[in-house]
């Protein structure tokens, strides 16, 4: 039986406050938030299953049909990229989580409570983005490495030796980059979420930018599309897991920084609006 009282003798006294609410406390708070809702676990499980599953399927199909592959297919085959194809689908899952991380604060009304606890909005925004980025990095790297190793094992079932190892040129960069690609896509969605503050809108816009725009560009005449393509965030992202440079791309890190550029721009714009707008 709890007899309610505001008599402070029933409550322990708080240790006196020293300093002020800062980034460290806000990071801890955001960690509690992200790990205390089921959607986090669901999206992470789905991301892992989709990424690894599709990679496994593709590499298995590649290995079992290798004897029918054309000469040009054999010449341009990139075993690392082949085993990381699942990330292309994993990006959609992290887009959902990235958008939700920010927009759920608004759809639930939690933002008003959150900003009462931490009214310094820059600190709040930074903590939220950082905690999400670290979570995305962990699941992204795990999915990328598992997809790679499982994929290479399946490629080993081909009649010829077509698999690769982490020690081969550019392969480690491709696999680590796969996880970074997931982080960048997630942060892009987070940033767009902070601009539009609406879950469905944020997800649709991000998927439109990452998925629909490149398809449209593909229908343009090749001379145009190649020039435009290298400036697209999607192309910038997927270039990171190529082990051989494509004709219409810059080198991997250069191309990847296109995606990072878009992500940074959206995050900064979102931050500026977040500071100014009414909650």
């Amino acid at each position: 039986m709890t007899a309610v009282t505001t008599d402070q003798s029933h409550l322990s006294t708080l240790p006196p406050a020293q300093g002020r609410a800062n980034l460290l406390g806000t990071l801890r708070s955001e960690i509690t938030k992200i790990r205390s809702v089921r959607s986090t676990y669901w999206t992470m499980i789905v991301l892992f299953v989709v990424t690894v599953g599709i990679s496994a399927l593709i590499t298995w199909l590649t290995a079992s049909h290798w004897d029918q592959a054309s000469l040009s297919q054999r010449a341009t085959f990139q075993p690392a990229r082949n085993s990381l194809i699942g990330l292309y689908f994993g990006q959609f899952v992290i887009v959902v989580l990235g958008a939700l991380t920010f927009t759920a604060e608004y759809s639930t009304g939690m933002i008003r409570t959150s900003l009462t606890a931490m009214p310094r909005r820059g600190v709040f925004y930074l903590a939220k983005a950082l905690v999400f980025a670290v979570a995305a990095l962990i699941i992204g790297e795990v999915a990328s490495f598992v997809a790679f190793f499982l994929g290479q094992a399946l490629l080993n079932t081909a009649p010829e030796h077509i698999s690769t190892t982490l020690g081969a040129p550019h392969v480690l960069r491709a696999v680590v980059g796969g996880g970074l690609f997931i982080v960048a896509c997630g942060l892009l969605a987070f940033g767009i979420g902070s601009l539009v503050r609406h879950t469905a809108a944020a997800i649709s816009i991000t998927i439109g930018v990452l998925f629909v725009v490149p398809i449209i560009v593909n229908f343009l005449p090749t001379s145009w599309s190649n020039d435009i393509m290298r400036w697209l965030p999607s192309e910038g992202g997927t270039a990171i897991w190529n082990t051989a440079q494509q004709a219409h791309e810059w080198p991997a890190w250069g191309e990847f920084s296109v995606l990072l550029g878009y992500t940074a721009a959206v995050l900064i714009a979102g931050y500026i609006l977040f500071r100014r707008r009414d909650a």
């Binding site: 409550l11 322990s12 708080l14 240790p15 406050a17 609410a21 406390g25 806000t26 801890r28 708070s29 955001e30 509690t32 938030k33 205390s36 809702v37 089921r38 959607s39 759920a104 604060e105 639930t108 009304g109 939690m110 933002i111 008003r112 409570t113 009462t116 606890a117 931490m118």
Partner: peptide, 29 residues
Amino acid sequence: LEAKAVHGGRSAYNHLLCLAQTNDIPKRR
């Protein structure tokens, strides 16, 4: 403010915990 300014998917305990952490308030509180 509005009573529903919480994330419904989070438990009451975790809701309060995340607020406490920002303000350096101990867990037992």
